[in-house]
């Protein structure tokens, strides 16, 4: 982990990964869209609305994944003061917020025809809404101070404390009686994977595409933050003569 704390070395690694992650993203997005919209069959109960699953479920997975990555980066920043860890957390927040917006809005678009309601205040939906506020709160807090480091520290603490929401979201459908269904892809649980292979192909293709999207935007975001930090340092040096 310490090897990546050096921005110059990090930039070299990031630039090596970027074209690959972008290629994986484009390729799996193509496969996911063709299978999801054309080749996969309609559901026997839900009809064509099942195709909403191929954006809703991968984006929902990513909301938890990105937040956890952000919390780990925040932890590394708080404990070891790694500058790149702070930049990684900062660059993750908007991506996570974007996935949460997609998860909530596609959920509403799926909920209306299948449940008869755009929104219900059940445990799963409410906890995901709180996650969106955590992302937005992180971004606001990180940029709320003139002293950037104070913002980073305060936001990192918020990210860590807010992580308590992640297991609540994950297990909300098991702990409480929710309108939202429990997980259908649960490799470690008793229920296993209860989706047909014809639907798993687009689901996993889109999941890979979204993950590669996160990697690509994250690396570009960190690169941007490193450049911005260098600009700040140079300007400060200029002012101080």
């Amino acid at each position: 982990m310490h090897r990546f704390a050096n921005p110059t070395r990090f930039l070299r690694i990031a630039n090596a990964i970027l074209p690959w992650s972008a290629a994986v993203m484009a390729l799996s997005l193509g496969v996911g869209l063709v299978y999801g919209l054309v080749l996969s069959p309609p559901d026997y109960q839900q009809g064509e609305t099942v195709r909403i699953m191929y954006v809703h479920v991968p984006s929902s997975w990513m909301t938890l994944f990105v937040y956890t990555a952000m919390a780990i980066a925040s932890f590394v920043y708080l404990v070891w003061k790694h500058p790149v860890a702070d930049l990684a957390a900062r660059a993750s927040a908007p991506v996570g917020a974007a996935f949460t917006v997609i998860s909530l809005s596609t959920g509403a678009l799926w909920g209306k025809p299948m449940w008869g309601a755009w929104w219900v205040w059940d445990a799963r939906l409410t906890s995901v809404l709180i996650l969106l506020f955590l992302y937005l709160g992180y971004m606001a807090l990180a940029n709320a101070f003139d002293d950037r480091q104070r913002g980073s520290r305060a936001a990192a603490i918020l990210a860590l404390v807010g992580w308590v929401n992640i297991p609540i979201i994950k297990f909300s459908v098991d702990w409480w009686n929710t309108l939202h269904q429990p997980a259908s892809v649960n490799p470690v649980g008793e229920s296993g994977i209860s989706i047909d292979a014809s639907m798993l192909v687009p689901l996993f293709a889109m999941a890979i595409a979204f993950k590669a999207y996160y990697v690509t935007t994250l690396l570009m975001g960190i690169r941007r933050e490193i450049a911005a930090a260098k600009v700040r340092t140079l300007r400060l040096a200029e002012v101080q003569g």
Binding site: G47, E48, R51, V55, A98, I102, S105, L109, T217
Partner: peptide, 30 residues
């Protein structure tokens, strides 16, 4: 989409606009 066009296409549209918009914003900022 079996009569569900008003729900399926906006779902993909929201994802495309939000993810595409963020991607372009990060790219231009970089």
């Amino acid at each position: 989409m079996g009569g569900y066009a008003g729900f399926v296409w906006p779902s993909y549209g929201v994802a495309a606009v939000v993810m595409g918009g963020l991607f372009v914003a990060v790219w231009r900022g970089l």
